[in-house]
């Protein structure tokens, strides 16, 4: 299961996106499928508005709880400078669900020197 956080403008959008993530995560957990959440670094850091920041960080925390419950859940965070090929590579690696759980991979270096998400 690959869940890419949509752009949201308000809390209604956050709630809709989180509900979708909940349904898909639950289905994946029941099917024992690996899960990958695709987020934006700027949202994790709170640099592009509160709705996007709430959604991205909620998904990151939810992903870590999925891992705590034994599911192969991970996340990728990308910046505007990332190449689609690099993102696809890391999604494929994490989609294999091999040993890595609860991890956040940053594609690009925009997070360096910032708070640890």
């Amino acid at each position: 299961m690959i869940f890419t956080a949509p752009e949201v403008q308000d809390f209604a959008g956050v709630e809709t996106a989180l509900t979708d993530a909940f349904r898909r995560s639950q289905a994946a957990a029941q099917a024992q499928e690996p899960m990958v959440f695709v987020l934006r670094n700027e949202h994790l850091l709170g640099q592009d508005g509160a709705p996007g920041a709430m959604l991205a960080n909620a998904l990151l925390s939810g992903m870590r709880t999925l891992a705590a419950e034994g599911h192969a859940a991970n996340a990728v965070a990308v910046g505007d400078e990332h190449s689609p090929e690099d993102l696809q590579h890391w999604i494929e690696v994490l989609s294999q669900g091999r040993g890595v759980m609860g991890e956040l991979v940053h594609v690009g270096a925009k997070h360096v020197g910032k708070i640890q998400a």
């Binding site: 709170g46 925390s61 419950e69």
Partner: peptide
């Protein structure tokens, strides 16, 4: 991340994002 708290941990992660 906390076992048995997908909803709670997501809500609190969301608060962290809101804070930033």
């Amino acid at each position: 991340g906390n076992f048995g708290q997908f909803n709670y941990s997501a809500s609190k992660g969301g608060l962290v994002g809101m804070t930033r």
